[in-house]
Amino acid sequence: MLTKRIIPCLDVKDGRVVKGVKFRDHRDAGDPVALAEFYDSEGADELVFYDITASSENRDIILDVVSRAAEKLFIPLTVGGGLRSVEDMNRMLKAGADKISINTAAVQNPELIGMGAEAFGSQCIVLGMDARRVTPGDLRWEVYTHTGANGGRVTGIDAIEWAIKAVRLGVGEIVVNSIDADGTKEGYDLELLRAISDSVSVPVVASGGAGTLDHMYKAVVNGHADAVLAASIFHFGEHSISEVKRFLADRDVPVRMVEP
């Protein structure tokens, strides 16, 4: 049976992990490759590097990070952040990424999805979607871009319609990030997740808001997510990946258990 995936996400800036990390016995908590190896050994099903490097002269550092990671990691690696062209995607895949996540660039230039899927296959192209409720309590969400800075920009595009369109254009997976829930640690936006997951044929990854193990359980059971992505819950050592998996397995959610 296909298992639900647990995916740690590392924000990387100028080649270093950004968010604070607390680990015992850890050699270099700021090195994305060392941290990625640690998560791999703990049973992470995939890894995401999200590059938030601002200055253009440091943009190539992530290629080196990805290349080093690819020598040590034998699980899938997705890389996102600042990729704007098929050539950008190609360089990242050549460096060793398995999937490319695009967000703002896909909204600005939807053809990029089709060009990427044509060149590398749909399985390589992940749509990262940042969405926010139009009004609280309302079952309508709008897509935001440029969420790296100042809360992002509203596009006026309906999140569900955008998801359906992106799949038609060729994405093989969608990461749904709720701006309302992100950083709150109060749980994923389950209604948003379910609305997207039930509307598209491709796998959906829950992102934004995980604070407890139960939040992750609800994302797959109530939100119909195929995978859960989280950052701080793992980085701050609140919960280990194996704890998440045990919690889910005890509640009959299929997961891949890894012997320590």
């Binding site: 639900k4 093989g172 044929s201």
Partner: peptide, 13 residues
């Protein structure tokens, strides 16, 4: 078949 999520993506036995 179209009633299943496509692609089949992830860890399976």
């Amino acid at each position: 078949p179209p009633q299943l999520k496509v692609p089949h993506m992830g860890w399976n036995q």
